[in-house]
């Protein structure tokens, strides 16, 4: 069995999930300081990819990153290459697909932190960064961890956006879900079966862990 698509999927998913984790935490922390109305606008934008068809998202990204656009030029200046039809494009695709899941799980965890704890920490001399590290993270880590797992599960299976902006170039941008598609089209049922089974199992495990974490309400110290 050719392991390249599987390894690429793993690489893309790990990198995209790591980036979603960092950017997501920054956004959640920033949004948690906003008034509810503004926060809901952020929530809407951050979770919009869930409601849009992947092909539509992919198409827009294609338009934005197409060769010769301003963004393409900036990207080229920064990284020396265009984004479209490279494996980092698959990372961007997975990030966009996975971000809403992280946000939807981590945001309520932050919103659930009693405001008076934050106020108490402020009067005890803590900076916002210290409050984030010493109060918010420990109290919201379950939501954050759960969101990360869900994001990873989603990134593993990303198909539509990836196809649009990274293409389906075997050995270069062909991730496991795209490889399955090719196997099915070319009639290679056994290869499709084994790859599909691996993805299904991985997705199931990460989703299960994510849901299990988010549903366990009681903390050790609250029992």
């Amino acid at each position: 069995m050719n392991l390249t698509p599987l390894l690429l999927t793993l690489k893309v998913s790990i990198i995209s999930t790591a980036l979603v984790f960092i950017l997501g935490l920054l956004l959640v922390e920033a949004a948690s300081r906003l008034a509810l109305r503004t926060r809901n606008v952020v929530r809407l934008i951050a979770t919009l990819p869930l409601a849009l068809p992947p092909t539509v998202l992919g198409y827009y990204l294609l338009v934005v990153f197409a060769r010769g656009t301003v963004i393409d030029k900036v990207f080229k200046a920064l990284f020396g290459t265009s984004l479209i039809f490279t494996w980092p494009a698959a990372v961007v695709a997975s990030m966009i697909a996975a971000f809403p899941l992280f946000f939807m799980t981590a945001m309520p965890a932050f919103e659930g932190i009693d405001k008076s704890l934050i106020n108490a920490a402020k009067t005890l001399g803590k900076t916002n960064w210290q409050i984030f590290r010493q109060v918010k993270l420990p109290l919201a880590w379950r939501g954050i961890a759960s969101g990360t797992l869900l994001a990873f599960a989603r990134a593993l299976g990303e198909f539509g956006i990836t196809l649009m902006i990274a293409g389906n170039i075997p050995g270069k941008t062909q991730t496991a879900p795209l490889a399955i598609y090719d196997f099915v089209v070319s009639g290679n049922r056994s290869a499709a079966n084994s790859l599909a089974a691996i993805l299904a199992l991985a997705g199931f495990i990460f989703l299960f862990l994510g849901i299990w974490l988010s549903q366990r309400r009681r903390y050790k110290f609250q029992r």
């Binding site: 008076s116 704890l117 108490a120 109060v135 420990p138 109290l139 903390y219």
Partner: peptide, 8 residues
Amino acid sequence: QEYALFPH
């Protein structure tokens, strides 16, 4: 008022 002790 409710003491706001850090539960963790």
